[in-house]
Nucleic acid binder design. Structure first.
Length: 722
DNA sequence: TACCGTAGAATTTTT
DNA sequence: TTCTACGGTA
């Protein structure tokens, strides 16, 4: 393979990035500008042109999906195995480091990874133990606090006792949490990163080794890195100038989760010899769409600056529809989708994007009644489902008796007569004697501390776990899982549950056995784990797909956040209203508002051919009617790129639609029907929401742009239709 | 232990 | 409005 095969399919900017000499590099890759391609080709360049062994290459991503895709594309392109190359997520790679150096990382050899749900449960239990009132100290908030500290690299011992009451309380919990995790051999997501950072920072020989090993370090979605992730990258590369990062400050939408967009700016300070390359040619969207995106995002401050362009032509203008209410909005969108399909379009090329999950319902209902297949993203993923987590807890406890989190989870699931009293006693004993719950129950049984019934029940449970642990030693993984699922009694439990739900759970458990069968244990076993532990880690680190792969051609419904990285021919961005998007909480904070704007930018740039923006004049939210003003983002898009879909164009629509959705036939009558724009002498412009009464008694409710919502008597109000 | 009623909350979620 | 978590009761 020679230079041209790697370089030929690239544009100038891409080439510049791919073939640059070894130095720190910041690639600002606009949406749809081929950033993965640049990463893949850059790595290919190192391997084929610079003769760097894959062994010496590191590539970090945020999602498993991105990591898998990158590995695959490199292997296909170079026709080599990329086994030796470290490609993975920050968390996956951190985990691998910790496993390979458990001792130096000061972890037990069989440490287990907790997902956020496990973590939350652990915190809840901890608060109970510490007698801390959960209503005053919400576990979620505690969890957030702890993770935020870890992401900043702060341990409990680094914190001062002297803070305010809140700080001191949080610190107490943080300390206790650290102790509990250490004692139970549990590691949460943030801990993986923090500990991996400390591991390298505090072990000079190790750091030296990995700095030598990773001659070229590549990072995807750099704008999403948090403090500790960036610190880890710096440890590995600073001074060597061998850090190649790709990102887009305009697509940073996870600030609320700790992502530091500043890392992009800091990069330029920390790597003074860096080079910046901008990828601005867009291969995805039409001119109108890009113009809208560019103009909108120009309203943000402190950008690196970038302007997307295309040579693909203007395309269709963006359509804007003002719906009466959220039902009309759904109606409109689904009508347009039906048209698209009638014109030969595929449903899978269509996406409905919204700010918050709650908005999906209207669309689902409408899609359902029209018989349009659809798929909603979000919600629980496979390994996060209750029944799966229960089954995995059995598996875990059978292999790690001292895992208290798993113990608590399943000790009485299904119910086996181990009640609150028994458990309380057990917890007290465990705390006093510094034992695990397992050890505590063994002792209680040994010392005959329990009434016969509870004692027998507990004995039964311990035996079950022992049996599962013992019998499964010799079995292949999927047989082990099968045994666990069957003997645990979970299947029976869910069979009894309400029809459809229980059935789904049983199916999921069966699917779990299947997943274990398909699990390719030796694919990445550098960690020297048992097959079971490897599977458990896999479950924690890769929560799995949202739903099983449904190949059916269906409309895609998802939040703007989950749409990042995807593209669709036809995109609907719905609920473009103040208070919804931008969300209420963001409106008074300039920083958060800019993040909302970036989210809007992400949404717009998902569209390849056609983009619809919709908002509703009236929206029922949490049981209350709201009359939101159109989103400011709509005004930030150049009018010449927008085509408003006028109500007049809708006259062919059967009046029954409005009636059935609003349930009041008077509302379509007369000059002042819903949606009619009017002007009032004093209140200015507004939109009719509904009417009531007849003759001189007729009243209209109007949402005035500036004066708010008012009821007016038609006979007196001087209204002018627009 | 299981079921019911009610209070209270209700962006976004790569790992 | 709708969902969840919790506390009370059978």
């Amino acid at each position: 393979m020679d230079v041209s095969t790697i370089i030929a399919p690239l544009n100038d900017a891409q080439r510049l990035a791919v073939s640059a000499p070894n130095q720190a590099m910041l690639v600002l890759a606009g949406a749809g500008s081929g950033k993965t391609r640049v990463l893949v080709h850059r790595i290919a360049w190192h391997i084929k042109i610079n003769q760097i062994s894959p062994f010496h290459i590191l590539a970090v991503t945020f999602t498993n999906k991105a990591a898998n895709e990158m590995r695959e594309r490199i292997e296909n392109m170079l026709e080599i195995s990329a086994r030796a190359m470290w490609i993975g997520t920050f968390h996956g790679l951190a985990h691998r480091l910790l496993r390979q150096h458990v001792e130096q990382a000061k972890l037990p050899a069989n440490f287990q990874v907790m997902d956020s749900d496990d973590q939350l449960r652990l915190i809840k239990r901890l608060l109970k133990n510490l007698n801390i009132d959960e209503t005053k100290w919400p576990p979620k908030q505690v969890q957030w606090f702890i993770n935020a500290q870890k992401e900043e690299g702060i341990r409990a011992r680094h914190m001062h006792e002297s803070g305010d009451f809140y700080q001191r309380q949080m610190l107490t919990v943080y300390k206790a949490y650290e102790d509990l995790c250490d004692r139970s051999g549990l590691v949460d997501f943030a801990e993986l990163l923090l500990r991996a950072h400390e591991l390298l920072r505090d072990n000079e020989d190790l750091l030296h080794f990995y700095r030598q090993r990773f001659q070229q370090v590549h990072v995807d979605e750099f704008q999403d890195t948090n403090t500790i992730q960036y610190a880890w990258l710096r440890l590995l590369t600073e001074g060597n100038d061998n850090l190649f990062v790709v990102g887009d400050d305009d697509q940073s939408i996870y600030g609320w989760r700790g992502a530091k967009i500043e890392n992009i700016f800091n990069f330029q300070k920390h790597y003074p010899n860096h080079q910046v390359v901008r990828l601005e040619q867009n291969y995805r969207s039409t001119g109108h769409i890009l113009k809208a995106a560019n103009t909108l995002i120009a309203n943000n401050e402190a950008r690196m600056g970038k302007e997307l362009w295309t040579d693909a032509g203007e395309g269709l203008p963006i359509s804007l529809y003002s719906a009466f209410n959220e039902q009309d909005e759904a109606y409109f969108v689904v009508e347009k989708i039906k048209q698209w399909v009638n014109d030969g379009g595929l449903r899978r090329d269509v996406a409905i994007l919204y700010r918050s999950n709650a908005q999906s319902r209207q669309f689902e209902e409408r899609l359902m009644t029209t018989g349009t297949p659809y798929r909603v993203y979000g919600g629980l993923r496979f390994f996060e489902r209750m029944e799966i987590k229960n089954a995995l807890a059995y598996l875990r406890l059978a292999n790690h008796h001292d895992d208290d989190a798993s113990f608590e989870r399943i000790v009485n699931t299904p119910t086996r007569g181990i009640g609150a009293k028994t458990l309380d006693d057990m917890r007290i004993l465990a705390r006093e004697q510094n034992l695990s719950l397992w050890q505590a129950s063994v002792r209680m049984l040994d010392e005959n501390r329990l009434p016969p019934r509870a004692g027998n029940a507990l004995k039964g449970f311990l035996n079950l776990i022992l049996q599962l642990g013992g019998e499964t030693l010799e079995l292949p993984l999927h047989e082990t899982v099968k045994l666990v699922v069957e003997k645990s009694g979970l299947i029976e439990l869910y069979k009894k549950e309400k029809q459809d739900k229980g059935e789904a759970r049983v199916e999921n458990l069966e699917e779990l056995v299947n997943a274990a069968r398909l699990f390719d244990a030796d694919s990445l076993n550098e960690e020297n784990l048992s097959e079971v532990d490897l599977f458990l880690t896999h479950a924690a680190l890769e929560a799995g797909e949202m739903q099983g792969e449904v190949d059916e051609d269906c409309v895609q419904l998802m939040t703007l956040h989950s749409a990042k990285g995807l593209e669709f021919k036809l995109v609907f961005m719905v609920g473009m209203e103040e208070g919804l998007f931008p969300s209420q909480q963001a409106t008074d904070d300039p920083g958060r508002l800019q993040e909302e704007r970036r989210l809007c930018y992400v949404g717009i740039t998902r569209a390849m051919e056609q983009l619809y923006l919709t908002h509703a004049e009236s929206r029922r939210l949490y049981g209350k009617d709201n009359y939101p003003r159109p989103s400011r983002f709509l005004r930030e898009i150049p009018p010449e790129s927008i085509q408003e879909i006028r109500l007049r164009a809708q006259v062919t629509r059967p009046a029954a639609t409005f009636n059935s959705t609003l349930g009041n036939s008077t509302q379509t009558a007369g000059r002042y029907r819903m949606g009619q724009s009017v002007r009032h002498e004093k209140f200015g412009e507004g939109v009719v929401l509904q009417t009531e009464g007849e003759g001189d008694q007729k009243k209209v409710q109007i949402n005035f742009r500036n004066a708010g919502i008012k009821w007016l008597m038609l006979a007196y109000a001087k209204l002018e239709t627009l």
